Amino acid sequence: MRQPPQHRIAVDAIKAWRITEVIVMVILLLLVIASFIVGHFFDWALWIPFTALAVWGVLAYLMIFLIPVVRWRRWRYEVFDQEIYVQHGILIVSRTLVPMIRVQHVDTKQGPILKRFNLSNLTVSTAATIHEIPALPQEEAAALRDQISELARVDEDDV
């Protein structure tokens, strides 16, 4: 069996993912608060909004504190001359090999939260799928994009 890839994504990915989840959880909290208001006007049983609040609390803990750390630990990648090796997953760990000969184009993208931490996502497109390596340092993502592009071009010329 092949060894896991060696390269990790940036540690700041944890912070970026946490900020994203805080935004999502604030929106969900507003919905929970709305359930209290609606419940008051429609005479719902009090257990309904309190259950929603309890579920929100558990979900907030998992999504903000636990999952980003586990997600970071599992994300790994490695670029070889003939393939890109990516590992990710939380409960189910996926290991994917992307042959260089199948690579059609490579992009980097950066949203406002990633930009704050000088991170970029690298996407590798093939005819069938798009593979993403998230939260790489900006310079590393650009260098990796250029390296994969060059390796994919060399493979096409050899065929």
Rank of each mutant, 00 (worst) to 15 (best):
T20D: 11
T20Y: 13
T20E: 11
E21P: 00
V22R: 04
V22A: 08
V22P: 01
I23D: 08
I23A: 09
I23T: 08
I23V: 10
I23G: 04
V24S: 14
V24I: 15
V24C: 10
M25N: 14
M25R: 12
V26T: 04
V26W: 02
I27S: 07
I27G: 08
I27P: 03
L28W: 12
L29E: 05
L29C: 10
L29P: 05
L30S: 09
L30E: 05
L31A: 14
V32D: 00
I33D: 07
A34F: 10
A34S: 11
A34C: 09
S35T: 12
S35E: 08
F36T: 01
F36I: 02
I37M: 07
I37G: 02
V38R: 04
G39A: 06
G39Q: 06
G39N: 04
H40N: 12
F41D: 09
F41M: 10
F41I: 07
F41W: 15
F42N: 13
F42S: 09
F42K: 10
F42P: 02
D43W: 07
D43V: 07
D43M: 05
W44L: 07
A45Q: 14
A45S: 15
W47L: 00
W47R: 01
F50M: 13
F50G: 02
F50V: 14
F50L: 15
T51W: 14
T51R: 08
T51G: 15
T51H: 10
A52E: 07
A52H: 05
L53D: 01
L53G: 09
L53V: 02
A54V: 12
A54H: 04
V55R: 05
V55L: 15
V55D: 02
W56M: 02
W56I: 01
W56F: 10
G57K: 04
V58H: 04
V58M: 13
V58Y: 08
V58S: 02
L59K: 04
L59V: 11
L59T: 12
A60T: 12
A60S: 10
A60G: 03
Y61S: 07
L62V: 08
L62P: 01
L62E: 03
M63H: 13
M63Q: 15
F65I: 05
F65A: 05
L66K: 08
I67S: 00
P68R: 01
P68A: 01
P68F: 05
P68S: 01
P68Y: 07
V69C: 03
V70E: 02
V70L: 11
R71I: 10
R71D: 13
R71M: 12
W72K: 05
W72V: 03
R73V: 00
R73I: 02
R73A: 08
R73G: 00
R73K: 12
R74H: 15
R74K: 14
W75R: 05
W75G: 00
W75F: 13
R76I: 04
R76A: 11
R76Y: 07
R76G: 00
R76S: 04
R76C: 00
Y77C: 02
Y77L: 06
Y77W: 13
